[in-house]
Simulated assay, not measured.
Amino acid sequence: MQIELTWTWLEGHPSLDFANTVIRRGWTEYELINSVADLDSWLDAAALPAPRPPTVTGDDLQAFLPLRDAALRLLRAGAGHGDWQATDVQTLNETLLSHPEVTLLGATMGSVESRPVGAPTPFTLLLAKLAAEVRDVLAGPRPDLAFCDAPSCGQLFFQRRPNQAWCGPPCGNRARVARHHTTSSN
C-alpha cells in the first residue's frame, strides 16, 4: 500500500512529530520514512528542535530510524499503550550521552543558551535534540499524552481536554462508525 506523504497530521510538538512518522491504515502500520527523500520532506514540514540540516544522507536515515523506533515505543508506553523497554531507554540515553550539551548563561539577565559539546554534524545535533524532546515528555508528568486508537490512526497526541479519546474529530467519527458497525452486525 502506498501512503501519500502530506504530513497533515503533524502535531507541532517535536517528540510527537518524530514518533508519528509511522502511520496506521486499518490496523496495519506503515513506515513513512522509507528514503532520504522522505526524510528530507519530513524535515521541511516538522517542528524541529534544532536547525534543519541543509542535506541528509543514507547514513542519516540509518541513524534516524532506530532512534525514532525507540522513541515511538517509549511514547506509546507513556500513553499507556505498550511496554516500557530497557533497550529503548538505552537507545535514547546513548543518543543523549553521545551528544551532550551545556547550558550557559545568556547575554541578557535571566536568559540561557545551550551549546553542544564538541562539533556534532547538524543532523547528529538534531537527533540529540529530538531525543531530549522525547526525554522531556516522558520525564515529567504528562497525563495529556495519549494514543489515538481509532481505526486507521494510531498517532500519539496531547489531549486538549481531559476526556478526549481521539486525536481529532475525523478519528472520533471513524471510531464511532466502526463501533456501530460492530454492534449492529452482532
Rank of each mutant, 00 (worst) to 15 (best):
117 V>A: 05
6 T>V: 14
37 A>M: 14
162 P>A: 10
93 N>W: 15
170 P>F: 07
112 V>C: 13
6 T>N: 13
165 A>H: 14
63 A>P: 04
39 L>S: 00
160 R>F: 07
19 A>G: 07
115 R>M: 13
9 W>T: 10
43 L>M: 06
2 Q>W: 06
56 V>Q: 00
110 G>S: 08
138 L>F: 03
38 D>A: 14
63 A>H: 00
10 L>D: 03
37 A>R: 06
94 E>D: 14
106 G>V: 01
131 A>T: 07
62 Q>T: 09
31 E>C: 05
72 L>C: 07
100 P>E: 11
80 G>W: 06
34 N>Y: 03
178 A>S: 00
103 T>L: 14
109 M>G: 11
28 T>C: 05
178 A>Q: 02
16 L>Q: 00
141 P>C: 11
22 V>Y: 10
167 C>P: 00
171 C>V: 10
30 Y>C: 06
2 Q>S: 15
101 E>T: 15
2 Q>I: 09
12 G>W: 03
151 P>Y: 01
104 L>Y: 14
150 A>W: 02
154 G>D: 02
132 A>G: 13
160 R>H: 15
146 A>G: 14
178 A>M: 02
9 W>F: 13
104 L>G: 02
142 R>H: 09
67 L>V: 01
174 R>W: 01
104 L>P: 08
59 D>H: 02
83 D>P: 03
131 A>R: 03
13 H>T: 15
52 R>M: 03
116 P>N: 07
146 A>K: 10
172 G>D: 05
112 V>A: 15
3 I>T: 03
144 D>P: 05
167 C>E: 01
35 S>K: 04
33 I>R: 03
64 F>S: 01
35 S>C: 06
104 L>V: 09
107 A>T: 12
82 G>Y: 02
150 A>S: 11
48 L>S: 07
42 W>D: 03
54 P>V: 13
50 A>F: 07
53 P>E: 01
114 S>E: 15
174 R>T: 03
102 V>N: 11
76 R>D: 07
78 G>N: 02
180 H>D: 10
90 Q>L: 08
87 T>W: 15
93 N>L: 13
124 T>S: 13
151 P>N: 04
156 L>C: 11
58 G>C: 14
5 L>Y: 01
57 T>F: 08
122 P>Y: 04
107 A>S: 13
125 L>R: 11
143 P>V: 01
156 L>K: 07
44 D>I: 10
51 P>N: 05
181 H>I: 10
114 S>N: 15
109 M>H: 15
181 H>R: 15
154 G>M: 11
33 I>T: 01
35 S>L: 03
85 Q>H: 12
106 G>C: 00
45 A>H: 08
63 A>N: 04
110 G>T: 04
122 P>S: 13
23 I>V: 14
46 A>T: 04
162 P>W: 06
80 G>Q: 12
131 A>Q: 09
175 A>I: 04
98 S>L: 12
114 S>W: 06
17 D>C: 09
179 R>W: 05
54 P>W: 12
71 A>F: 10
54 P>F: 07
47 A>M: 14
47 A>S: 13
14 P>A: 03
115 R>S: 10
159 Q>T: 12
35 S>Q: 05
157 F>R: 04
60 D>L: 01
19 A>T: 10
124 T>D: 12
165 A>M: 14
124 T>Y: 04
40 D>N: 12
